[in-house]
Structures are given as structure tokens and as C-alpha cells.
């Protein structure tokens, strides 16, 4: 997958909530969406991009655990400042958008991202 976070953020007009170096060049392996963190832990692909409206602090732990490339928080849900701080500390990239998860997933699919990482 050649798609970068920079291209995704630009195309979907995502707001970057965290500070990290060289985030634009990161290439997510696949896409995933769920709002139940136990399911995410079991099902999200390694280095994938995760779409959720859950803004609770625990999303950072889950994203760090699975080494997700980024989290897109949908429907304008706002994480607490302490959550963003935690994300910066753990190197987790957070985006926010007013769009719903369905819209975001659809746009990413159109751009070529799939549920599973492409075969090497």
C-alpha cells in the first residue's frame, strides 16, 4: 500500500490532534472500524488505521499495543487534553473529523485501502 497518512489527511480534511515527526510519510497497512475496544484489540490489523467514534483515553493504549499507524476519531468526538497528551507520549497519531465512520471508511476504501494488508 502506497497511500500515506499525509495523503489521507489531505483528501479527507482530517484535523491532526497530535504532534509527531514525519507522520505524513507513514503508510497504513489496512483499515479497521469498531467502537468496542475489546474487539479492536482482537481484530485490528497491525499498523492499520482505526476509525472510531470512541474518544476515551483507552484508545491510546489499544493503538499503542497494536502499533496502529493512526486513529481517526469520527463524528466530531473530542478526546480530553490528557488523552492527546498521552497519545503524544506514546507516539500515537490521532485525527479528528466531523464525518461519520461510514463516510470515512468509504473514502479510504475508494482511495485503495482494504481491510487486510495486501499480500507481499
Amino acid at each position: 500500500m502506497n497511500l500515506t497518512l499525509g495523503e489521507i489527511a489531505k483528501a479527507l480534511n482530517l484535523e491532526l490532534l497530535t504532534q509527531s515527526k514525519d507522520w505524513e510519510e507513514i503508510r497504513p497497512s489496512a483499515g479497521y472500524t469498531s467502537d468496542m475496544l475489546s474487539c479492536v484489540m482482537a481484530g485490528a490489523p497491525h499498523r492499520g488505521i482505526w476509525i472510531t467514534l470512541q474518544a476515551h483515553m483507552n484508545i491510546i493504549a489499544v493503538a499503542a499495543l497494536l502499533e496502529l499507524s493512526a486513529v481517526i476519531i469520527t463524528e466530531g468526538a473530542q478526546p480530553e487534553p490528557s488523552t492527546i497528551e498521552k497519545a503524544n507520549e506514546k507516539g500515537v497519531i490521532l485525527f479528528s473529523t466531523k464525518e461519520g465512520s461510514f463516510e470515512v471508511a468509504g473514502r479510504l476504501w475508494e482511495m485503495g485501502l482494504r481491510a487486510m494488508p495486501p499480500e507481499e
Binding site: L37, C39, M41, N58, S82
Partner: peptide, 11 residues
């Protein structure tokens, strides 16, 4: 809480 948030929140 556990299925939804995965773990007890640290905060």
C-alpha cells in the same frame, strides 16, 4: 466496561 473500553482506565 471491559468489552467497551478494553481495560480499567488508568485515569
Amino acid at each position: 466496561l471491559i468489552p467497551i473500553l478494553g481495560m480499567i482506565p488508568l485515569d
